[in-house]
Design a protein around this nucleic acid. Structure first.
Lengths: 234, 234
DNA sequence: TAATCAATACTTGTATACAACAATTGTGGA
DNA sequence: TCCACAATTGTTGTATACAAGTATTGATTA
C-alpha cells in the first residue's frame, strides 16, 4: 500500500528525514517539531505535516497531539513479528518459485549475486559498503518475489520493513563478515530453489532471517533508551 | 502500523467515509473533492486532507495532484495476493497454535463461535446480519492470532484488508447460506487445531479463504467499471 | 465546418494566522 | 520551605487565502 510517489516538494523532505531516522542520525525518542523542520527545509508546516503523518503510518514517528512529535522507539516485539512474517512468507513463496523453477530465470539471480560479491570485494569504506549491500540485499529478495509472481507483496513489506532496517543499523549488521555471511546465505538459498531442496530451503531461510537478530541481544544494552519496553504478549 | 487513534475531530469523518467506501455507497471510480467533503461535514479542508491521505495509504482513495481524488478501483490482482498472504500466514500461525494447544483456550473460541451461531439464527434483516457476522468473523481470526501470541500481525493485516472487505460487499457474500458455510468452516478449523490435524487444517484454511473468492468470478461483470484492469504480472 | 488556442473553472499543493491544549515556569501565599 | 495556581511557552489542530497545475469550454480564425 503506501503511495510510492508523493507530491514533489515534500517527497525530498520525506526521503531525507526517513533516511536520518533509519541511519539513527535522528535517535529514537528525539523530539522533532513541525515548525523547526519547516524552517530547516525552507518550507511551511503544511507539507511537513504530510511528511510526519506518512512517517507515523510507517511507525517511524509518534505524533502526540499538543505535546510533540518524537522519533519512535525501536519495538523489538514488533520486529520479532515482522521477522516471523518474513520467514513464513518467504518459505512459502520461494517454495512456489522452486516448484515452477525455470532455467531462464537463472541469469536474473546470478546478476544480483554477482553485484553483491563485487560490493564486498570493492574498496569502499565499510559504512558505504554496508549501505550498498543492503540495497543489493533487498534487490535479491525482491527479485525472487517478482519471479514468483508475488510482486504486490513486496509493496506491503516495504511499509513495515523500516522498523527492522533501523534495528539493522543499530546492531551494526554491516561488518565485512556479516555481509559475507549474508551473501553466502543468498547463494545457498538460490541453490536450494534451483534444486528443489525444500527442507534445506526452509532451514536456510529461517537462519538467514533470524541469525543476525538473535546474535544481537547484547547490543541492546548499549542504548537501552532507544527501545520500547513491551509487556510480554500472550 | 497505521495509527489507531486519530485527532478527534477528523476521526469521525475518517470512519464515516471509510464505511461509505467499504459499503460501496461511494462507488469505485467516484470523484470526491476536498472542498465538497469539507462543506458536507462542516469542517475545513485541512482535516479532510488528513483523512484523504490516510485513506490513500489504505488503498481506498487515489489522489491525483491537481486533478482530483477518486475512490480507488477494486484491484483483483492485489486482493489475490492479500488472500495468498492470509492463506500462508494463517496456515503457519494456526499450526503453531495447534502445536501449543492448551485446553484452557477452548472457551475463548467457543464463545466466538456461539456468537456467530446466534447471529445466523437471529431474525435480523439479512443486510444487518451480514455486517454483524463480518465483525464476528474478524473476531474469530483475531482471537486465534492472539492465542498464538501474534497479535501485532493483526495490525498489519488490518491496513490492507480493507481492499478485500469491499470486494466481499460487492459479491454480496452475505446470504444466509454463505454465512452458514463460513461458520461451519470456523468450527472445522478449530476442530483441526484442537486435534492437531495439520493436513486437514491447511486444507480447510485454503478453502475457507479462496472458495468465496473463486465462486464470484461471474459477479465481476455486473459492474466491470468498478475494477482495475491489471496487466498480468510474471 | 473544423481546428486552434486563450480564457475559465475546477482540482490539489502550499503558506500562514489563529485556536486548542499540555507542560513548564515562576509567583504568591501559607 | 513547601504548596497552590496562574501566566507563559511550546506544541499540534484547524481555518482560510493564495499558488500552481489540469481539463474543459468557448470564441476566434482559417
Amino acid at each position: 500500500m503506501i503511495s510510492s510517489k508523493k507530491a514533489g516538494a515534500s517527497q525530498a523532505v520525506y526521503q531525507r528525514i526517513k533516511e536520518q531516522i533509519l541511519h539513527l542520525e535522528l535517535a529514537p525518542g528525539t523530539a522533532i517539531s513541525e515548525i523547526d523542520t519547516a524552517e530547516k527545509y525552507h518550507i511551511s508546516r503544511t507539507p511537513v505535516r504530510d511528511v510526519f503523518k506518512a512517517l507515523e503510518s510507517e511507525g517511524l514517528l509518534e505524533i502526540k497531539p499538543h505535546i510533540g512529535t518524537f522519533v519512535s522507539l525501536i519495538d523489538l516485539d514488533m520486529i520479532s513479528d515482522i521477522l516471523y512474517m518474513r520467514e513464513v512468507m518467504e518459505q512459502a513463496i520461494f517454495k512456489d518459485l522452486s516448484a515452477s523453477y525455470d532455467k531462464s530465470q537463472e541469469f536474473r539471480i546470478q546478476l544480483v549475486l554477482k553485484e553483491q560479491k563485487e560490493i564486498i570485494e570493492s574498496d569502499l569504506p565499510i559504512e558505504e559498503m554496508s549501505r550498498a549491500f543492503i540495497v543489493a540485499d533487498n534487490r535479491f529478495h525482491h527479485t525472487l518475489y517478482e519471479l514468483a509472481g508475488k510482486k504486490n507483496i513486496i509493496t506491503f513489506f516495504n511499509a513495515i520493513n523500516s522498523q527492522y532496517e533501523r534495528f539493522r543499523t543499530f546492531i551494526n549488521l554491516g561488518g565485512k563478515n556479516d555481509l559475507l555471511r549474508l551473501y553466502h546465505d543468498h547463494t545457498a538459498i538460490w541453490k536450494c530453489i534451483a534444486s528443489q531442496d525444500y527442507d534445506g530451503l526452509c532451514d536456510r531461510i529461517s537462519h538467514h532471517i533470524y541469525d543476525g537478530f538473535n546474535a544481537s541481544a547484547l547490543e541492546v544494552h548499549k542504548h537501552p533508551e532507544y527501545f520500547k519496553i513491551t509487556k510480554k504478549q500472550a
